[in-house]
Design a protein around this nucleic acid. Structure first.
Lengths: 188, 188
DNA sequence: CGACACATGTAACACGTTACATGATTTG
DNA sequence: CAAATCATGTAACGTGTTACATGTGTCG
């Protein structure tokens, strides 16, 4: 529901029409997640259907500005006031992929880990390159978005490394016989 | 598309029916993201429609096992071979929320940050509690999932702190208007 | 004029989610 | 027997996404 609330937040600045909303959204989120214009209109329709926004009467039929309603303001305030919970988050594809790779026959988990690590490392480098200091206050939101992506990517690297070392301790000897060997040697 | 591929991966172990798939999925992902049974059946239908799985002839009409097809194996292999890219990921709600909070009138960004930080900290603590060492190799996938959530939550804390300090550096010596606003609201 | 950016809108589809309806099987 | 669990399936809806159709204004 990020787009819904995102548009509501933008309309809290004042009435805007679809095309403007798209530019404003992409400016705030730093073009990290491009937003199709069509999506803006469909989302606006749904917001209007739900009474959270209202189309303004406009002389210019080529631009249809919307304004946020009282119900919209309430919804928005509730959004900002409620922290994002762990249970709210969508399933993380990478986590699922690795978890399942462990028990899927014919899959070389370590190469999956290493491939992902290389890709994520490239992401880190690209993000670091993009996140050049921009002292203008207008650039602040986009900057923080980049930082968020960067922090996440770095955490992903750490997790992948953690996975690799854990795999070494656990699954390096793939046969059951090796299990006995580990037990006998008294590791951990 | 995590569920699609997840079910494919589970079927790579051998034929299974819907109810089993749900248990297996939740066991692998450690009940972090509970999976509605209905979703398994809808997803299985779509997989069958796309030729990635095939319903097995079964004497028992109360259990309808599926097997993965060759096309399914190819799709699965491609999934494991292709790293998750930054652009693939869904929009992150928290990031968007904070980015927009910065430019939404009437929103106290710092309290949003602090509220979220407290919630995420609780998540960290709960995850730490849950991630007790389980030496059984069967528990490995679920354990790594918990670790992933933990690493992400910790990164989120770091990012929130980073936001707060950045806000201090930026919004402290601002325009005279904002100065008045801050003074009037009695912050600091 | 023709190309291009601006601007709106719709149709179609994918996936995820919940709620519900329906049976079979086990078990107290 | 009754209740719980196992097991399948569908209907309806929500968001997100793309592709397409349409029109307006501007500028070289």
């Amino acid at each position: 529901m990020s787009i819904r609330h995102g548009l509501l937040a933008l309309l809290e600045r004042g009435p805007m029409y679809g095309y403007q909303l798209r530019s404003a959204f992409e400016e705030s989120t730093g073009a990290t997640w491009p937003l199709n214009v069509g999506q803006v209109y469909t989302t606006l329709s749904r917001l209007e259907r739900d009474g959270l926004v209202r189309a303004l009467p406009s002389s210019d039929r080529s631009q249809r500005p919307y304004e946020i309603t009282e119900a919209g303001r309430a919804e928005l305030a509730s959004w900002f006031a409620t922290p994002v919970d762990r249970g709210d988050r969508p399933r993380d594809e990478l986590t699922i992929k690795l978890a399942l790779a462990l028990t899927t026959p014919g899959v070389d988990v370590r190469s999956v880990v290493r491939n992902q690590r290389a890709a994520t490392l490239r992401t880190v480098q690209e993000l670091t390159r993009l996140a050049t200091p921009d002292p203008r206050p207008e650039g602040l939101p986009a900057r923080l978005v980049l930082d968020a992506m960067l922090f996440q990517a770095e955490a992903e690297i750490r997790w992948l490394d953690h996975c690799e070392t854990t795999l070494l301790r656990f699954a390096s000897p793939p046969t059951a016989a090796a299990d006995d060997a580990r037990k006998a040697s008294g590791v951990d």
